[in-house]
Design a binder for these strands. Structure first.
Lengths: 233, 233
DNA sequence: ACCGATAAAAAGTCAGATTTATTCGTCACA
DNA sequence: TGTGACGAATAAATCTGACTTTTTATCGGT
């Protein structure tokens, strides 16, 4: 399931990374490579590789004579999928989920508008297929099946937009939707209105109606914001 | 100017990273750590750290017995500031600039709406100050001064939104604006209409008029899209 | 009190030895 | 002829210990 599991280096990263993103070390704390290597019972080489990766994520900064300094959260590369995963697994999961949902509400409507212009026939077909899947799993506590098709639906929209920056947010949306289903609200069947909106969106994209696709998506994401008690702009 | 310049490891990264993002190695190419270490005249330890960082950016994948495989562009962490910088410095700079400008057009209006709700008095003051700075440098080929205030303006908007995901896009916007000024269009003074829009936006935020702030920002980003000949949605 | 030399601390770098996992070729057996 | 198991080759992964470099703090002299 995890991406980095492979190798000794990845295992250390999967322990130290979450510790940092969870705020286990206040900003400005200094860690020493040697001590960390001892703690995790790995060689300095491996530890240095871990530090280098954390440094590339702007979680820490390594300076001579002083050590590995933990950076404040405002410096972190919060778009790094790994960092997102670590933070979603940690304590400030709710805050993270809100931030990402607001991002969705900004990006997805525009992406849907572009998808209506650029989607291939095959992508349109996938879209309706996903929407039908959502309908089929919308009643009777089939939450997992619903989630599967929901994630696939939004992934197709983002990809079909033709913008690589949007396409890369597919994983983020997947995490948000999965988080909503598994941990937070939504104990019962999904909102029927949301299901309808997805079906209509698939139709709008197929009909090349960009304005309608954008508007429908705005309604979908607004629903997601309301679920998290975020004021609608 | 560059972030990674420090250290031998950073210098190798600044050469190999751009080579990969520029498409110098077709996806699936295999590089061997030993050969790379020879080529850059560094030890294997340093080379392994570089590979680890490139791996964390999903630019390459390192597997035993086979070597370091270059991944296709669709796998790259295109939100990594380092990757963005490398790609903006490379050959497909125009495409990259378009992608980022579309992203701006999605994010900034929503961010401005939130800023109108959440901005502090100090941030409002900064905003008007930046707008005035733009006005002051809008005539007489003072492009550098104009750019400086333009970047600062958008940074404040993104930060004042209160959303960390938006705030982190400040660097991206800075790169886009700088790229537009230095390399592409805009040989003459900036569009007076754009300057006016920024002044009005500062006013709208101060007046806590979220709807107006969002609308004005939409006009600003639409202008940016038109400059790059991107069809308006 | 100020300034420069010196020493210490920690990351940075390197090279060699060793381990481990993967691939590919070969050979036996069905 | 095709399939599967065994083994050798290979390249990354890891460990180790020594050496270098940079930065900072301390100490002594003026």
């Amino acid at each position: 399931m995890s991406t980095t599991g492979r190798g000794l280096h990845g295992r250390v990263l999967d322990t130290l990374g979450p510790e940092i993103t969870a705020g286990g070390y206040p900003p400005g704390s200094v860690l020493r490579t040697d001590e960390l290597a001892q703690r995790f019972d790995v060689s300095r080489s491996v530890m240095r590789e871990v530090v280098r990766v954390l440094e590339s994520m702007h979680l820490v900064e390594s300076r001579r004579r002083v050590g590995v300094t933990v950076l404040p959260a405002c410096e972190w590369n919060v778009y790094d999928p790994q960092v997102i995963r670590w933070r979603l697994a940690g304590a400030d999961r709710p805050r993270q989920l809100r931030s990402l949902t607001v991002l969705r509400s900004a990006v997805e409507p525009v992406a849907a508008g572009l998808a209506a212009r650029n989607a291939t026939a095959e992508q349109c077909a996938e879209l309706t297929e996903c929407a039908l899947g959502m309908v089929a799993h919308s009643r009777g506590h089939k939450l997992e099946g619903y989630l599967f098709h929901d994630v696939a639906f939004h992934r197709v929209i983002l990809t079909a937009s033709g913008n690589e920056m949007f396409a890369r947010l597919g994983d983020v949306v997947a995490e948000v939707l999965a988080g909503r289903t598994h941990h937070d609200v939504m104990f019962e069947d999904p909102d029927p209105a949301a299901v309808t909106l997805h079906v209509q969106l698939a139709e709008a994209v197929r009909a090349r109606d960009a304005a309608r696709a954008e508007k429908l998506t705005r309604e979908i994401t607004e629903g997601a914001l309301q679920e998290l008690d975020i004021l609608a702009p």
